[in-house]
Design a protein around this nucleic acid. Structure first.
Lengths: 194, 194
DNA sequence: GGTCAATAATGACTATGGTCATTTTTAATT
DNA sequence: AATTAAAAATGACCATAGTCATTATTGACC
């Protein structure tokens, strides 16, 4: 259907323009009117596509999907543990490289996850990718674990976000990576020595 | 100083009134003007105390401090692992009992944690309490772990928040408790069987 | 190609968060 | 009690997010 194509097109144009402006001037300094003006549409149209200004941020997240996928599927050396940790370090690096926007995207994604979700959130997609990785490793014998892969993925992802949240105050990448590593180790080997 | 007393008093009155109204009508349906009207102050005064409307939510969180402390220090039976898990279950229960507001408080706390923080956040306070608990257990010999208590606490807290965030979409308390338990076990014993 | 219902765009309008120059209150000092 | 400088309260004001009744566009059907 042609209608659908145009709608998708307009939506994408809005997102693209919004990202552009957010990067230039920062989220708070960009008005909806400015976005629509640059898109050549009326202000009201924006709200036909996104119920709130913040909602664009969710779609900004989507534009990173390919990058994330690239990181997950990049071929890596070493044992599973190191490989997984390397993935997280790459994620961290990517996050910090675009921290200004991604910080907002993260918050918004969390927020949308707590509300009754319609679409699967970015967070869920990420977690799913890690789960698949672990599951595959299990099947190949690279991981022995009595816990469900989904549960393990959830734990690892939780730690990752925790690091982003509590670390992004001040710490530099190296410090955050170290924090992440420590927690990662603790979860991987178990908090208790039994 | 008398000045200080009055200021503290006004601030508290604002917070109290805000909580009251938020519970009655929901955060989004309460205007700043309404809050100040009920407090008998001018609208502008509100912003002398809180830079943004949302910032009251951070202080709403503070009003739960005693409850949280009560849960942490409540005497409990069983081994450390079960005791810690029981604390988390009580936290979960408390959270769900006031989910409407606490959901917003949680988001706001996370948000303030990502910005350059001035005061220690609610999140940090919570984590600190768990760390102290673990540290004490270590000293008493109730916990043997090669990991730092702070790191362990961070992992556990991360899992807890993760559960709140991803669970609060639909699940009931029992389901969320089960999810929490699984992840807790995985982190406590270690994801890998080695 | 004319008709019509569904879909989408529009922009005037409203509500409210947040600002700020001005006024009022406070309490220290003489 | 008069003076004064700092602190706090005030409310008119502005910017902008979000609404909604109206208008324009689309494409299916005859």
């Amino acid at each position: 259907m042609l209608r659908e194509d145009r709608k998708r097109n307009t939506k994408e144009r809005i997102v693209r323009t919004a990202i552009q402006l957010f990067k230039e001037k920062g989220y708070a300094n960009v008005t909806v009117e400015e976005i629509t003006r640059l898109c050549g549409i009326a202000k009201g149209t924006f709200f036909n596509y996104f119920p709130k200004k913040e909602n664009v941020l969710l779609h900004v997240g989507n534009s990173y999907t390919e990058l994330l996928s690239g990181i997950v599927h990049k071929p890596r050396e070493g044992n599973l543990r190191d490989r997984v940790m390397a993935i997280f370090r790459d994620f961290l690096s990517l996050y910090l490289k675009h921290a200004d926007i991604l910080r907002l995207v993260l918050i918004e994604s969390i927020q949308s996850a707590t509300g009754s979700a319609d679409e699967p959130t970015n967070l869920a997609v990420f977690q799913e990718a890690i789960r698949d990785l672990l599951e595959e490793a299990k099947n190949e014998g690279a991981l022995r674990s009595r816990f469900d892969s989904g549960v393990c993925a959830s734990v690892l992802v939780a730690i990752f976000y925790q690091t982003l949240i509590s670390g992004s105050a001040s710490a530099d990448e190296a410090a955050m990576a170290a924090i992440l590593q420590e927690q990662f180790d603790a979860a991987w080997e178990g908090i208790s020595d039994e």
